[in-house]
Computed example of a mutant assay.
Amino acid sequence: MTQEKEHWDVVIGPGGRLIGVDLKSLWSYRDLVWMFFKRDFVTFYKQTVLGPLWYLIQPSLTALTYYVVFGRIANLSTSGLPPYLFYMSGIVLWTYFATCLANNSEVFSKNASLFGKVYFPRLVVPIAVAMSGLVAFGIQFCLLLVIMVGFIFAGSGITWPGPFILLVPLLILYVAVLGIGMGLIVSALTVRYRDLIIATGFLTQLWMYASPVVYPFQQIPEKYQWVFYLNPMAAPIETLRMALFGSAGVPYSLWLSNVAVAAVLFFVGLVLFSHAESSAMDTV
């Protein structure tokens, strides 16, 4: 008597892809992305007194600190823009990138118990993290617009944004992809090297000072500008200021270089993350 062959509805196995990304599978788990998004947003501020008001307090006080330290004491140039607006615009975009990077750097360690019990595409978590950070960015960006309107009516010389403001969604998408890519690299490496969790915050702070957050790209001596061509956060910060305030444009060569670096980092992140997820639960 021959034994009938068992049939399974779903078989989970390696897909044979270089980076192990199954877009169709990710789309089928879109409801899970939404669930993780709500979890991250609710739990982070669940037991706080001020709640989402911290989204407004943090960038406001940080911009004020930069205004005093870099604007008044160090007297750094802001290329003719009001210093507070200059610092605020850099802080808002940089904070979104840093949030994506920091919160994605511990994907395996923070979700070890869940990953060990249930199967779902692991990229669901980094995407949800980027979405939850987008809420904070949206609130802070609205605050920036309100402050900008105040400066316009105060006669500071700032004009209303032109058509370049339509570039803002593309800048957000670019920063989200970059933040996810860098977060995937760090999360994959921290599976074996836990010291990176501690070093990530410090290195991110150094990265910020190597970006045009507190000083404009145009003020950098030409012999040092190559650093900004390797820094994928240089072009989006300067482009945001151009879109909002009509400041000096960004060289096309800077954008091409930044996009190339960001694409490489995102691809490397996908590869490392894909290889790490197969053994992460045995190591974390």
Rank of each mutant, 00 (worst) to 15 (best):
W8E: 13
V149Y: 10
F108T: 00
L61Y: 04
G133L: 10
Q218V: 15
L166H: 10
L81F: 09
A248N: 10
V135P: 03
G51L: 10
F37R: 10
C100G: 14
R72H: 12
I197G: 11
W8N: 09
S25C: 09
A176S: 11
W8G: 08
T200E: 12
L170F: 15
S211E: 05
G155K: 06
I197P: 05
M281Y: 12
Y229S: 08
W27G: 04
S105N: 09
Q3G: 12
G138N: 05
A263H: 07
S156I: 03
L240D: 00
M242T: 09
C100N: 11
P126H: 07
T239S: 15
G90K: 09
D282N: 14
G15T: 12
A262Q: 00
A188N: 03
V259N: 04
A243P: 00
V268C: 07
V135L: 09
F267D: 02
T283V: 15
A130P: 01
V124N: 04
Q140S: 15
M88N: 05
A235F: 10
I158L: 13
P59D: 08
L50N: 08
G181H: 08
F37H: 09
V227N: 04
L244V: 03
A176Y: 01
I147Y: 06
V68R: 03
W27Y: 14
T200S: 13
I91S: 08
I139R: 02
G246L: 09
V129I: 15
K223A: 14
A130K: 04
L114G: 06
G183K: 06
Y55I: 13
V107S: 07
V175F: 02
A63T: 01
E222A: 14
T48E: 13
T95A: 15
Y174F: 15
L93I: 06
P83L: 07
V118T: 12
L171N: 03
E238K: 06
R122G: 02
K5M: 11
Y174P: 02
A63Q: 05
E277N: 01
G269H: 05
A235E: 01
L166D: 03
L196R: 11
I172T: 02
Y45H: 12
T43D: 11
Q219H: 07
V214D: 02
Y55R: 09
E222T: 14
L184F: 00
P163G: 06
R194I: 01
L101H: 06
V129W: 02
F44C: 05
T62F: 12
F202P: 08
F273I: 01
D195E: 15
P163A: 13
L53G: 13
V33T: 13
V177A: 14
T43S: 15
P169N: 11
Q47D: 14
G157Y: 04
L178H: 07
Y87N: 00
L85P: 03
A102H: 05
F141E: 03
S113R: 14
I165K: 05
M208I: 01
F36D: 01
V125I: 10
K46M: 10
W54Q: 11
V21W: 03
V107M: 04
S60R: 05
G20K: 02
Q47H: 10
V213R: 00
Q205N: 13
F266N: 02
G155E: 07
R72E: 10
V135G: 06
W255Q: 03
Y45R: 05
S278E: 13
C100I: 00
